[in-house]
Simulated assay, not measured.
Amino acid sequence: MNNPDAHDFLAVDQDLTEEERAIRDAVRDYGTAELLPHVADWFEAGTIPAVREVAKGFGALGVFGMHLEGYGCAGTNAVGYGLACRELEAIDSGLRSFVSVQGSLAMTAIHHYGSEEQRQEWLPRMAAGEAIGCFGLTEPDSGSDPGSMRTRARRDGSDWVLNGTKMWITNGSVADVAVVWAATDDGIRGFLVPAGTPGFTANVIHKKLSLRASITSELVLQDVRLPADALLPEASGLRAPLSCLSEARYGIVWGAAGAARACFESALDYTKARVQFGRPISDFQLTQRKLADLLIDVNHAMLTALRIGRLKDAGQAHHSHISFGKLANVRSAQRVAAIARGMHGASGITLEYPVMRHMLNLESVATYEGTEEVHALTLGQALTGSSAFR
Protein backbone atom coordinates (compact mmCIF):
# COMPACT_ATOMS: atom_id res chain seq x y z
CA MET A 1 0.00 0.00 0.00
CA ASN A 2 1.30 3.46 -0.90
CA ASN A 3 1.94 6.14 1.71
CA PRO A 4 -1.06 8.43 2.38
CA ASP A 5 -1.29 11.64 0.36
CA ALA A 6 0.41 14.38 2.38
CA HIS A 7 -2.15 16.89 1.09
CA ASP A 8 -5.17 14.82 2.21
CA PHE A 9 -3.67 12.43 4.72
CA LEU A 10 -6.93 10.96 6.03
CA ALA A 11 -8.46 10.91 2.54
CA VAL A 12 -11.23 13.24 3.69
CA ASP A 13 -12.01 14.24 0.11
CA GLN A 14 -12.80 10.63 -0.76
CA ASP A 15 -16.10 11.20 1.06
CA LEU A 16 -17.10 13.95 -1.37
CA THR A 17 -19.64 13.43 -4.11
CA GLU A 18 -18.76 13.91 -7.76
CA GLU A 19 -20.52 17.29 -7.78
CA GLU A 20 -18.67 18.39 -4.64
CA ARG A 21 -15.33 17.44 -6.16
CA ALA A 22 -16.22 19.42 -9.27
CA ILE A 23 -16.91 22.50 -7.13
CA ARG A 24 -13.66 21.98 -5.22
CA ASP A 25 -11.63 21.69 -8.41
CA ALA A 26 -13.29 24.62 -10.17
CA VAL A 27 -12.69 27.01 -7.27
CA ARG A 28 -9.16 25.71 -6.66
CA ASP A 29 -8.22 26.07 -10.33
CA TYR A 30 -9.73 29.56 -10.52
CA GLY A 31 -8.01 30.67 -7.33
CA THR A 32 -4.63 29.34 -8.42
CA ALA A 33 -4.82 30.91 -11.87
CA GLU A 34 -6.64 34.19 -11.26
CA LEU A 35 -6.12 35.16 -7.61
CA LEU A 36 -2.92 33.67 -6.22
CA PRO A 37 -0.61 35.53 -8.63
CA HIS A 38 -1.98 38.87 -7.37
CA VAL A 39 -2.92 38.37 -3.74
CA ALA A 40 0.49 39.18 -2.23
CA ASP A 41 0.52 42.50 -4.11
CA TRP A 42 -3.03 43.24 -2.97
CA PHE A 43 -2.07 42.44 0.60
CA GLU A 44 0.96 44.72 0.40
CA ALA A 45 -1.14 47.50 -1.16
CA GLY A 46 -3.82 47.08 1.51
CA THR A 47 -6.70 46.85 -0.95
CA ILE A 48 -8.12 45.00 -3.95
CA PRO A 49 -7.47 47.53 -6.75
CA ALA A 50 -9.69 45.88 -9.37
CA VAL A 51 -12.49 44.94 -6.98
CA ARG A 52 -15.24 45.17 -9.63
CA GLU A 53 -13.38 42.77 -11.90
CA VAL A 54 -12.80 40.39 -8.99
CA ALA A 55 -16.51 40.54 -8.17
CA LYS A 56 -17.48 39.72 -11.75
CA GLY A 57 -14.99 36.84 -11.75
CA PHE A 58 -16.58 35.42 -8.61
CA GLY A 59 -19.99 35.90 -10.19
CA ALA A 60 -18.97 34.00 -13.31
CA LEU A 61 -17.53 31.25 -11.11
CA GLY A 62 -20.91 31.02 -9.36
CA VAL A 63 -19.75 31.36 -5.73
CA PHE A 64 -21.86 34.38 -4.72
CA GLY A 65 -24.88 33.09 -2.82
CA MET A 66 -24.15 29.64 -4.19
CA HIS A 67 -26.05 27.95 -1.33
CA LEU A 68 -29.24 29.91 -2.12
CA GLU A 69 -32.03 28.84 -4.45
CA GLY A 70 -33.26 30.85 -7.43
CA TYR A 71 -32.50 34.41 -8.57
CA GLY A 72 -29.37 33.29 -10.45
CA CYS A 73 -27.91 31.44 -7.45
CA ALA A 74 -26.42 27.98 -7.88
CA GLY A 75 -28.40 26.22 -5.13
CA THR A 76 -25.51 23.98 -4.05
CA ASN A 77 -25.49 21.99 -0.84
CA ALA A 78 -23.73 23.16 2.32
CA VAL A 79 -20.65 20.99 1.76
CA GLY A 80 -20.22 22.39 -1.74
CA TYR A 81 -20.35 25.93 -0.40
CA GLY A 82 -17.91 24.97 2.35
CA LEU A 83 -15.45 23.56 -0.15
CA ALA A 84 -15.55 26.82 -2.10
CA CYS A 85 -14.76 28.70 1.13
CA ARG A 86 -11.91 26.30 1.89
CA GLU A 87 -10.30 26.79 -1.50
CA LEU A 88 -10.73 30.57 -1.43
CA GLU A 89 -9.26 30.96 2.04
CA ALA A 90 -6.34 28.76 1.04
CA ILE A 91 -5.56 31.72 -1.23
CA ASP A 92 -6.42 34.47 1.29
CA SER A 93 -8.91 35.06 4.10
CA GLY A 94 -9.86 38.41 2.60
CA LEU A 95 -11.10 36.76 -0.59
CA ARG A 96 -13.19 34.23 1.29
CA SER A 97 -14.54 37.09 3.39
CA PHE A 98 -15.57 38.91 0.20
CA VAL A 99 -17.62 35.90 -0.87
CA SER A 100 -19.03 35.30 2.63
CA VAL A 101 -20.17 38.88 3.12
CA GLN A 102 -21.74 39.04 -0.32
CA GLY A 103 -23.46 35.65 -0.19
CA SER A 104 -23.91 34.50 3.39
CA LEU A 105 -24.66 37.91 4.85
CA ALA A 106 -26.04 40.46 2.37
CA MET A 107 -27.66 38.08 -0.13
CA THR A 108 -28.94 35.71 2.54
CA ALA A 109 -30.56 38.61 4.39
CA ILE A 110 -32.37 39.71 1.23
CA HIS A 111 -33.22 36.14 0.18
CA HIS A 112 -34.63 35.07 3.57
CA TYR A 113 -36.10 38.30 4.88
CA GLY A 114 -36.69 40.58 1.90
CA SER A 115 -39.78 41.15 -0.20
CA GLU A 116 -40.10 39.56 -3.62
CA GLU A 117 -39.47 42.97 -5.18
CA GLN A 118 -36.25 43.35 -3.17
CA ARG A 119 -35.11 39.87 -4.18
CA GLN A 120 -35.77 40.53 -7.86
CA GLU A 121 -34.05 43.91 -7.73
CA TRP A 122 -30.83 42.82 -6.04
CA LEU A 123 -30.17 39.09 -5.99
CA PRO A 124 -29.64 38.35 -9.71
CA ARG A 125 -27.16 41.21 -10.02
CA MET A 126 -25.38 40.26 -6.81
CA ALA A 127 -25.14 36.61 -7.86
CA ALA A 128 -23.54 37.73 -11.13
CA GLY A 129 -21.10 40.04 -9.36
CA GLU A 130 -22.61 43.06 -11.09
CA ALA A 131 -23.67 44.54 -7.74
CA ILE A 132 -21.79 44.35 -4.45
CA GLY A 133 -23.43 44.25 -1.05
CA CYS A 134 -22.29 44.74 2.54
CA PHE A 135 -23.74 43.92 5.94
CA GLY A 136 -23.92 46.62 8.61
CA LEU A 137 -24.36 45.10 12.06
CA THR A 138 -21.19 45.73 14.11
CA GLU A 139 -20.72 49.17 15.67
CA PRO A 140 -17.77 50.89 17.36
CA ASP A 141 -19.24 50.12 20.81
CA SER A 142 -21.32 47.07 19.88
CA GLY A 143 -19.48 43.98 18.69
CA SER A 144 -20.11 40.83 20.69
CA ASP A 145 -23.32 42.36 22.04
CA PRO A 146 -25.20 43.48 18.91
CA GLY A 147 -28.39 43.96 20.90
CA SER A 148 -26.83 47.08 22.40
CA MET A 149 -26.54 48.80 19.01
CA ARG A 150 -27.05 52.55 18.97
CA THR A 151 -28.05 52.92 15.33
CA ARG A 152 -31.72 53.84 15.32
CA ALA A 153 -34.47 54.04 12.76
CA ARG A 154 -37.57 56.13 13.41
CA ARG A 155 -40.71 56.53 11.40
CA ASP A 156 -41.46 59.84 9.75
CA GLY A 157 -44.76 59.48 7.96
CA SER A 158 -44.38 56.52 5.65
CA ASP A 159 -40.57 56.94 5.55
CA TRP A 160 -37.82 55.72 7.86
CA VAL A 161 -34.98 57.95 9.08
CA LEU A 162 -31.74 56.24 10.16
CA ASN A 163 -28.90 57.59 12.32
CA GLY A 164 -25.85 55.75 13.53
CA THR A 165 -22.44 54.29 12.71
CA LYS A 166 -21.36 50.81 11.67
CA MET A 167 -17.75 49.63 11.91
CA TRP A 168 -15.49 46.97 10.35
CA ILE A 169 -17.76 46.52 7.34
CA THR A 170 -16.24 44.46 4.53
CA ASN A 171 -16.76 46.04 1.09
CA GLY A 172 -18.61 48.98 2.63
CA SER A 173 -17.05 51.68 0.46
CA VAL A 174 -17.56 49.76 -2.80
CA ALA A 175 -21.00 48.30 -2.04
CA ASP A 176 -23.99 49.16 -4.19
CA VAL A 177 -26.31 48.32 -1.32
CA ALA A 178 -25.83 48.02 2.44
CA VAL A 179 -27.97 45.79 4.62
CA VAL A 180 -28.15 47.93 7.76
CA TRP A 181 -29.58 46.78 11.08
CA ALA A 182 -31.10 49.38 13.37
CA ALA A 183 -33.08 49.55 16.59
CA THR A 184 -36.68 50.72 16.24
CA ASP A 185 -39.62 51.09 18.58
CA ASP A 186 -40.64 47.62 17.39
CA GLY A 187 -37.23 46.01 17.93
CA ILE A 188 -34.26 45.51 15.62
CA ARG A 189 -35.10 45.69 11.92
CA GLY A 190 -33.13 45.45 8.69
CA PHE A 191 -33.02 48.06 5.91
CA LEU A 192 -31.60 48.20 2.39
CA VAL A 193 -29.57 51.37 1.94
CA PRO A 194 -28.44 51.95 -1.66
CA ALA A 195 -25.10 53.66 -2.23
CA GLY A 196 -25.51 57.35 -2.90
CA THR A 197 -28.46 57.77 -0.56
CA PRO A 198 -28.21 61.29 0.96
CA GLY A 199 -26.66 61.20 4.42
CA PHE A 200 -25.04 57.79 3.87
CA THR A 201 -21.25 57.68 3.64
CA ALA A 202 -18.70 54.85 3.73
CA ASN A 203 -15.15 55.60 4.84
CA VAL A 204 -12.30 53.19 4.13
CA ILE A 205 -10.40 52.00 7.20
CA HIS A 206 -6.64 52.22 6.59
CA LYS A 207 -3.52 51.08 8.48
CA LYS A 208 -4.77 47.52 8.94
CA LEU A 209 -2.21 44.80 9.64
CA SER A 210 -4.66 42.00 8.85
CA LEU A 211 -7.11 41.24 6.01
CA ARG A 212 -5.20 43.70 3.88
CA ALA A 213 -6.36 42.07 0.63
CA SER A 214 -9.84 43.26 1.52
CA ILE A 215 -11.71 46.56 1.74
CA THR A 216 -12.96 47.42 5.23
CA SER A 217 -15.09 50.47 5.95
CA GLU A 218 -16.98 52.55 8.46
CA LEU A 219 -20.60 53.30 7.55
CA VAL A 220 -22.04 56.61 8.75
CA LEU A 221 -25.77 57.34 8.58
CA GLN A 222 -26.87 60.91 9.26
CA ASP A 223 -30.60 61.44 8.85
CA VAL A 224 -30.72 58.88 6.06
CA ARG A 225 -34.27 58.91 4.73
CA LEU A 226 -35.57 55.69 3.24
CA PRO A 227 -38.95 54.79 1.76
CA ALA A 228 -41.14 52.22 3.47
CA ASP A 229 -40.16 49.54 0.96
CA ALA A 230 -36.50 49.72 2.09
CA LEU A 231 -37.46 47.71 5.18
CA LEU A 232 -36.79 43.96 5.08
CA PRO A 233 -40.36 42.92 5.87
CA GLU A 234 -39.64 39.45 7.29
CA ALA A 235 -36.77 40.44 9.60
CA SER A 236 -37.73 41.23 13.17
CA GLY A 237 -35.41 41.07 16.16
CA LEU A 238 -31.81 39.88 16.48
CA ARG A 239 -32.66 36.42 15.24
CA ALA A 240 -32.57 37.59 11.62
CA PRO A 241 -29.04 39.05 11.51
CA LEU A 242 -27.72 36.28 13.76
CA SER A 243 -29.06 33.64 11.39
CA CYS A 244 -27.11 35.31 8.58
CA LEU A 245 -24.01 35.35 10.77
CA SER A 246 -24.43 31.64 11.38
CA GLU A 247 -24.25 31.05 7.62
CA ALA A 248 -21.07 33.12 7.37
CA ARG A 249 -19.52 31.44 10.41
CA TYR A 250 -20.14 28.10 8.74
CA GLY A 251 -18.01 29.32 5.83
CA ILE A 252 -15.25 30.23 8.28
CA VAL A 253 -15.22 26.65 9.61
CA TRP A 254 -14.16 25.52 6.13
CA GLY A 255 -12.10 28.59 5.33
CA ALA A 256 -9.86 28.20 8.37
CA ALA A 257 -9.15 24.63 7.26
CA GLY A 258 -8.03 26.02 3.90
CA ALA A 259 -5.70 28.58 5.48
CA ALA A 260 -4.20 25.86 7.68
CA ARG A 261 -3.69 23.58 4.69
CA ALA A 262 -1.93 26.31 2.72
CA CYS A 263 0.49 27.00 5.59
CA PHE A 264 1.21 23.29 6.10
CA GLU A 265 1.84 22.71 2.40
CA SER A 266 4.18 25.70 2.24
CA ALA A 267 6.11 24.45 5.29
CA LEU A 268 6.38 20.95 3.84
CA ASP A 269 7.67 22.20 0.48
CA TYR A 270 10.06 24.71 2.06
CA THR A 271 11.64 22.30 4.53
CA LYS A 272 12.17 19.67 1.84
CA ALA A 273 13.96 22.21 -0.35
CA ARG A 274 15.92 24.13 2.31
CA VAL A 275 19.35 22.57 2.86
CA GLN A 276 21.37 23.16 6.03
CA PHE A 277 24.30 21.13 7.39
CA GLY A 278 24.34 19.25 4.10
CA ARG A 279 20.76 17.93 4.38
CA PRO A 280 17.22 19.19 3.78
CA ILE A 281 15.90 20.45 7.09
CA SER A 282 12.93 18.12 6.64
CA ASP A 283 15.33 15.28 7.51
CA PHE A 284 15.82 16.53 11.05
CA GLN A 285 13.77 15.21 13.95
CA LEU A 286 12.60 18.59 15.23
CA THR A 287 11.27 19.54 11.79
CA GLN A 288 9.51 16.21 11.31
CA ARG A 289 7.83 16.56 14.71
CA LYS A 290 6.55 20.01 13.73
CA LEU A 291 5.30 18.71 10.39
CA ALA A 292 3.47 15.89 12.16
CA ASP A 293 1.79 18.38 14.51
CA LEU A 294 0.70 20.53 11.57
CA LEU A 295 -0.61 17.48 9.72
CA ILE A 296 -2.80 16.50 12.66
CA ASP A 297 -4.25 20.00 13.06
CA VAL A 298 -4.99 20.30 9.34
CA ASN A 299 -6.74 16.94 9.11
CA HIS A 300 -8.70 17.50 12.31
CA ALA A 301 -9.94 20.77 10.81
CA MET A 302 -10.92 19.07 7.54
CA LEU A 303 -12.85 16.35 9.39
CA THR A 304 -14.62 18.89 11.59
CA ALA A 305 -15.68 20.97 8.58
CA LEU A 306 -16.98 18.00 6.64
CA ARG A 307 -18.91 16.58 9.59
CA ILE A 308 -20.62 19.90 10.32
CA GLY A 309 -21.36 20.28 6.61
CA ARG A 310 -23.04 16.89 6.49
CA LEU A 311 -25.08 17.77 9.58
CA LYS A 312 -26.10 21.04 7.93
CA ASP A 313 -27.18 19.31 4.74
CA ALA A 314 -29.24 16.89 6.82
CA GLY A 315 -30.93 19.78 8.63
CA GLN A 316 -29.32 18.71 11.90
CA ALA A 317 -26.69 21.43 12.44
CA HIS A 318 -27.31 23.42 15.60
CA HIS A 319 -25.75 26.87 15.89
CA SER A 320 -23.54 25.47 18.67
CA HIS A 321 -22.11 22.97 16.17
CA ILE A 322 -20.99 25.92 14.06
CA SER A 323 -19.53 27.60 17.16
CA PHE A 324 -17.62 24.38 17.83
CA GLY A 325 -16.23 24.42 14.29
CA LYS A 326 -15.34 28.09 14.27
CA LEU A 327 -13.59 27.91 17.63
CA ALA A 328 -11.73 24.66 16.92
CA ASN A 329 -10.70 25.29 13.33
CA VAL A 330 -9.58 28.89 13.73
CA ARG A 331 -7.55 27.91 16.79
CA SER A 332 -5.94 25.07 14.83
CA ALA A 333 -5.24 27.32 11.84
CA GLN A 334 -3.59 29.94 14.04
CA ARG A 335 -1.36 27.28 15.57
CA VAL A 336 -0.42 25.90 12.14
CA ALA A 337 0.31 29.35 10.70
CA ALA A 338 2.53 30.37 13.61
CA ILE A 339 4.57 27.16 13.58
CA ALA A 340 4.84 27.19 9.78
CA ARG A 341 6.04 30.78 9.88
CA GLY A 342 8.93 29.77 12.13
CA MET A 343 9.79 26.80 9.93
CA HIS A 344 10.40 29.18 7.03
CA GLY A 345 13.03 31.07 9.01
CA ALA A 346 13.62 34.65 7.93
CA SER A 347 11.87 33.97 4.62
CA GLY A 348 8.67 33.39 6.55
CA ILE A 349 8.17 37.08 7.23
CA THR A 350 8.08 37.94 3.53
CA LEU A 351 5.20 37.88 1.08
CA GLU A 352 7.15 35.43 -1.06
CA TYR A 353 5.53 32.77 1.10
CA PRO A 354 1.91 32.77 2.31
CA VAL A 355 2.46 31.91 5.98
CA MET A 356 2.88 35.38 7.53
CA ARG A 357 -0.03 36.68 5.46
CA HIS A 358 -2.26 33.87 6.69
CA MET A 359 -1.01 34.28 10.26
CA LEU A 360 -1.96 37.97 10.26
CA ASN A 361 -5.30 37.34 8.55
CA LEU A 362 -6.26 34.71 11.09
CA GLU A 363 -6.02 37.31 13.85
CA SER A 364 -9.07 38.94 12.27
CA VAL A 365 -10.79 35.64 11.56
CA ALA A 366 -10.46 34.76 15.25
CA THR A 367 -12.16 38.05 16.19
CA TYR A 368 -14.94 38.68 13.70
CA GLU A 369 -18.29 36.92 13.57
CA GLY A 370 -17.90 35.82 17.16
CA THR A 371 -14.72 35.96 19.21
CA GLU A 372 -13.17 32.84 20.69
CA GLU A 373 -14.70 33.76 24.04
CA VAL A 374 -18.21 34.15 22.60
CA HIS A 375 -18.07 30.77 20.89
CA ALA A 376 -16.66 29.13 24.02
CA LEU A 377 -19.59 30.53 26.04
CA THR A 378 -22.01 29.33 23.36
CA LEU A 379 -20.64 25.83 23.83
CA GLY A 380 -20.85 26.27 27.59
CA GLN A 381 -24.52 27.19 27.30
CA ALA A 382 -25.17 24.16 25.09
CA LEU A 383 -23.55 21.93 27.69
CA THR A 384 -25.06 23.40 30.87
CA GLY A 385 -28.29 25.04 29.72
CA SER A 386 -27.18 28.24 31.45
CA SER A 387 -26.25 31.44 29.59
CA ALA A 388 -23.17 33.26 30.84
CA PHE A 389 -23.68 36.25 28.55
CA ARG A 390 -25.98 38.20 30.87
Score class of each variant (00 low, 15 high):
residue 94 G to E: 06
residue 311 L to P: 03
residue 283 D to G: 07
residue 278 G to H: 09
residue 280 P to E: 06
residue 57 G to C: 11
residue 311 L to R: 13
residue 278 G to Q: 08
residue 301 A to E: 00
residue 207 K to V: 07
residue 347 S to N: 13
residue 88 L to G: 02
residue 296 I to T: 11
residue 167 M to W: 01
residue 4 P to F: 03
residue 336 V to D: 02
residue 70 G to H: 11
residue 168 W to M: 06
residue 72 G to M: 13
residue 387 S to M: 14
residue 333 A to E: 01
residue 54 V to R: 13
residue 387 S to R: 15
residue 18 E to S: 13
residue 368 Y to G: 01
residue 325 G to E: 03
residue 245 L to H: 02
residue 139 E to D: 01
residue 87 E to G: 07
residue 139 E to K: 04
residue 132 I to S: 04
residue 82 G to C: 13
residue 96 R to N: 08
residue 130 E to M: 09
residue 129 G to M: 05
residue 31 G to R: 12
residue 340 A to E: 11
residue 288 Q to P: 05
residue 352 E to H: 10
residue 329 N to R: 06
residue 220 V to Q: 12
residue 186 D to Q: 09
residue 294 L to W: 03
residue 21 R to M: 14
residue 238 L to D: 06
residue 35 L to N: 02
residue 277 F to Y: 00
residue 209 L to T: 07
residue 301 A to G: 09
residue 215 I to S: 11
residue 104 S to G: 05
residue 310 R to Q: 06
residue 337 A to E: 07
residue 200 F to D: 05
residue 241 P to D: 01
residue 156 D to P: 03
residue 326 K to A: 08
residue 340 A to T: 13
residue 104 S to Y: 04
residue 141 D to K: 06
residue 333 A to T: 03
residue 205 I to G: 09
residue 235 A to S: 10
residue 271 T to A: 12
residue 45 A to F: 05
residue 186 D to T: 08
residue 203 N to A: 15
residue 94 G to R: 10
residue 225 R to P: 02
residue 359 M to A: 11
residue 283 D to F: 09
residue 283 D to Y: 09
residue 129 G to P: 04
residue 248 A to Q: 02
residue 236 S to M: 09
residue 253 V to R: 02
residue 218 E to S: 13
residue 49 P to H: 03
residue 353 Y to E: 08
residue 268 L to C: 04
residue 21 R to P: 07
residue 327 L to T: 02
residue 261 R to E: 06
residue 214 S to D: 02
residue 371 T to K: 05
residue 348 G to S: 04
residue 337 A to G: 13
residue 339 I to L: 15
residue 142 S to W: 04
residue 265 E to F: 02
residue 208 K to V: 02
residue 115 S to F: 14
residue 290 K to F: 07
residue 276 Q to H: 10
residue 7 H to E: 02
residue 196 G to T: 05
residue 358 H to K: 12
residue 202 A to W: 09
residue 319 H to S: 12
residue 243 S to Q: 09
residue 80 G to N: 07
residue 132 I to P: 01
residue 287 T to K: 05
residue 232 L to W: 08
residue 120 Q to G: 11
residue 364 S to N: 05
residue 286 L to G: 10
residue 135 F to A: 01
residue 182 A to Q: 05
residue 123 L to A: 15
residue 2 N to M: 12
residue 104 S to P: 02
residue 50 A to I: 03
residue 358 H to M: 09
residue 301 A to I: 01
residue 381 Q to H: 15
residue 25 D to N: 15
